[in-house]
Write a protein that binds this DNA or RNA. Structure first.
Lengths: 149, 149
DNA sequence: CGACTACGTCAAGTCCACTTGATGTCAAGC
DNA sequence: GCTTGACATCAAGTGGACTTGACGTAGTCG
């Protein structure tokens, strides 16, 4: 039962920004995108829940591996509105992301290995190598989307 | 001695564009960036050397793994102006790229593993997990650049 | 009380990698 | 010879992820 909002501490924009390593303007931007939320003080100042730091860390980590804010928002939207996200919530997202990561890792590894091969044979400059002929590369792959790897 | 321009065939923009799977406008753009080159016919039409296809494949492959056009240009600029690039030329670039790829793969793998861990412990929502505390995440890593992984 | 800093809003600007549009030209087919 | 399509140039637009600027307010310190 971690649904109980344990110790909800509210932090000011500057504090959040500094600890999360983002600009205050970025917080505004994320808020306008619906990625994070805030409440207001009587003087109209924003206040962020402490766990916003976690969300921001999650956003940065996801972005870092090339996931768009849109997709990140999609995942965050599926978290519960009220109460803290449960282990199950994060697990679902993590699994989703992990599959994505696995796919990317596979692509990168394949490409790296191809390049490694090329180091041995210099294929990109010689006709003899199967990878050197752009037509073959084109033909090897039905669609126009995935060209080289 | 592959320096001898074997069979230099010149292709029209439309042909190059189709075979490489890019728009003609992209060719213009790349040319303006100095990534590819062309000569002109008497009627001011562009003509591309056949091996431009190889360069384009290389650009796409590199881009695909997140390398910017700027960096790609940097690599291409180090190829010889005249004659075909040698095996050694491509090898150098490939090695450079491969190191880059290895780094990215490491990041992704680390992130995935962290997420996998989270699936087990639900850390992102519980105080007990070392990864859950954003302050620790911040503290674990001197700079502001690398936040989560 | 006054100064200063952090914060508020909103529009506009930036960077990258292109694409779109306007307008004019070259070349091949009938 | 004329139409059609591919091509030329150049300016401007697009989209994602922010940042910057202009301008006004809130709260804190001496």
């Amino acid at each position: 039962m971690p649904q109980v909002p344990e110790d909800v501490v509210w932090l000011k924009p500057g504090q959040i920004a500094e600890r999360a390593g983002v600009a205050v303007s970025t917080l505004h931007y994320y808020e306008s995108m619906g990625l994070i939320r805030s409440r207001r003080t009587s003087g109209n100042r924003r206040e962020y829940r402490r766990d916003t730091l976690r969300v921001l860390a999650f956003i940065r980590a996801s972005q870092r591996v090339g996931i768009s804010l849109d997709r990140i928002k999609g995942a965050l939207d599926r978290l519960p509105e009220e109460g803290l996200p449960t282990a199950r919530d994060w697990a679902r997202i993590s699994r989703e992301w992990r599959d994505d990561l696995n796919e990317r890792i596979e692509h990168l590894t394949a490409l790296r290995d191809r390049f490694s091969l090329c180091i041995g044979c210099g294929c990109l400059s010689l006709k003899s190598c199967p990878y050197s002929n752009p037509d073959d590369i084109l033909g090897a792959d039905g669609q126009g989307a995935l060209r080289f790897p």
